[in-house]
Design a protein around this nucleic acid. Sequence first.
DNA 1: AACGCTTCCAACCGCCTGTAG
DNA 2: TCTACAGGCGGTTGGAAGCGT
Length: 279
Amino acid sequence: MGRAPCCDKANVKRGPWSPDEDATLKNYLHTHGTGGNWIALPRKAGLRRCGKSCRLRWLNYLRPDIKHGGFTEQEDQIICTLYTQMGSRWSAIASQLPGRTDNDVKNYWNTKLKKKLMAAKVISPNNNNNKTLLTTQQNSDFQATKNCSSSSLVHLPILSNDITNFSSNISLDLIHQQLYSPQFMNLEIGGANSRNNKNNNSSSNIEGSTSSSSLALLDYKGGSSLLEEEKQHGVGGDNDESNKEFLMDLGFDGEFSQSISSYCYSEWVDFNCAEIKPH
DNA sequence: AACGCTTCCAACCGCCTGTAG
DNA sequence: TCTACAGGCGGTTGGAAGCGT
């Protein structure tokens, strides 16, 4: 038995909001606030909409402090950095970007930033330090796709579940200092934009990937960790070094990256390799 | 101009979590 | 402690707009 729907689907309007509906919702919230109950709100406001839909419309579009328009380079860098630290926790990431919503950030990441980053970090086919690790389940998929250009794979070490400990050891000031350093701000990630990349055969180009995230984190410290396997079989062991390298790429200095890299246990894996088509 | 493909983003879906009773 | 419900969130979808041929 499925979960009961939050509203009567047959009697609520769906799809794009009209200017009238927007005005009604805005006026109601301006006068009464949410009243602590989004589900009851549309009925009180005279809207034939689901409460969740009202909430979403308000939070993502109608709120007065919403920032519309393109993302700045600075915002790009913040998103990338936070994504590498905490993964797809869009609300947490958005909370660090005034005026941006989780939906905005998520869309922006899926449509632009992900591709931008993927173009930036490319595995050299001959570089054994850049291993791509797959879970057993995903390994068969990878086997089926290994004939695709390995230069299309992305390999990014990230900060993992020890970020909490990390945060308590490294001051946020230091992070911000590094984040906004000229070195960091000038870091070039990929081409000018995805449209331009389209005509650039020399850059890796991800076309036809699904809208869902194809990136996954393999946490070496987790239960399904491959790190232990690696240790047992005597492979790997250079993660600290590659992580450090990556952090230095991002503008973190030697000492800082050394501190952080000891907390890095994860790698990016792109499971959409099969869908990467060279142009 | 017309068509098809790609990109973008608003909106929906359903699961998870917190909380009141 | 249990249950029901609402809020919050991330993943996904569908249609409009843009672009190339």
